[in-house]
């Protein structure tokens, strides 16, 4: 049984369908990236999963408990971090975590141990006596993540946790999330920073105008993004003058599937499209190998030849249309 099962989730605001029949599942130990443009319905979906809002229709099951019919049973399984971290400015890090541990009804030794372990996990021990108002955004974000972990939830719902963080804080967050997934926690994370997500997510779901457009393992989504459309090759020639570059350009343009060749400093950028419109899986590898062979056979001194891999940004751009509600 999946830890999180979302079936036909719909949320109406008047006539606006903010979330429209969203369905997906999330297993324990998996990090699922929830991707979508602003106003796509990510936060609304996450609020419904966190039992903070009611769907107009659909079902959310968290470890078999309905978040709608049995919110009291579902809530202890959820750790929710909203897009605003929500820290009390006039409390120290320890006081903040201790207060929430009390609010989660942890008592005495159990509470002390839990706060201590969460502080160590989130690297907060050295900051324990600092007021939260004195912390940087990255530190506050770690405090908020620590708060989310206090009651040992099995499902983490993190709404834009990397927003506004510097590179170091992002890398720290990435490491923390990976460690949590290794401990068997399911993580649902939304973000605009797609490069970040591609490095930590096992799966992703792309949402636009409230509708889920694509979902599945990241590798599948990327293959799908690459499989259907054009791709780009970058090549460089050793000690190439203008003459050999233009010769290479002419040669490449004669090859099937090459639609555009442009100069890129001392190299060339080649746009490759599947012959006949839709490429079969693996067509990029086949076509690029053929091109490379042609270039070498022609005696051109190729010193670098690289297929630019599709990433989540490509997948996102190929799936979404930039529409907002």
């Amino acid at each position: 049984m999946s830890l999180l099962e979302v079936k036909g989730l719909t949320r109406l605001f008047g006539r606006l369908r903010a979330v429209d029949g969203v369905s997906f599942t999330l297993e324990a130990g998996v990090i699922l990236g929830f991707i979508g443009p602003n106003g796509a319905g990510k936060s609304t979906t996450m609020r419904m999963l966190a039992t903070l809002d009611l769907p107009s229709s659909g079902e959310v099951l968290i470890d078999g408990h309905s978040a709608i019919e049995e919110p009291d049973r579902a809530r202890p399984l959820i750790g929710y971090m909203p897009d605003r971290y929500g820290t009390y400015e006039d409390m120290t890090v320890f006081e903040f975590l201790d207060f929430f541990a009390r609010a989660y009804r942890l008592k005495g030794k159990e509470r002390r141990e839990r706060v201590q372990s969460v502080m160590e996990f989130a690297r907060l021990t050295e900051l324990k006596d600092k007021l939260t108002s004195e912390l940087s955004k990255g530190m506050k974000q770690r405090v908020a993540l620590g708060r989310t972990l206090l009651h040992d939830p099995r499902l983490l719902i993190l709404d834009e946790p990397a927003d506004g963080l510097d590179p170091r804080a992002r890398i720290e967050l990435r490491e923390l999330l990976k460690a949590l997934a290794e401990e068997g926690k399911a993580v649902l994370i939304s973000s605009h920073i797609l490069t970040e997500l591609s490095e930590i997510c096992d799966a992703c779901a792309i949402i636009e105008q409230g509708k889920l457009l694509a979902q599945g393992p990241v590798s599948e989504i990327l293959a799908r993004a690459q499989g259907g459309g054009a791709t780009e090759l970058c090549l460089r020639l050793a000690g190439a003058g203008e003459e050999s570059l233009s010769w290479a350009e002419r040669l490449l343009l004669e090859q099937p599937g090459v639609s555009k060749v442009s100069a890129d400093g001392a190299g060339l950028r080649v746009r490759l499209e599947p012959v006949g419109g839709q490429g079969a899986p693996g067509w990029v590898e086949e076509a690029s190998a053929r091109l490379l062979r042609q270039l070498i056979d022609a005696g051109l001194p190729v010193c670098s030849f690289q297929v630019r891999e599709a990433d989540l940004e490509d997948a996102f751009m190929s799936v979404t249309r930039g529409r907002v509600q």
Binding site: A50, T51, L52, D72, R75, P76, I78, Y80, P82, R84, G86, T87, Y88, F100, A103, Y104, R105, R147, H151
Partner: peptide, 11 residues
């Protein structure tokens, strides 16, 4: 500051 949401989720 939306800390209310965090409080309600504690039960």
């Amino acid at each position: 500051e939306e800390t209310w949401v965090l409080l309600t989720l504690t039960g």
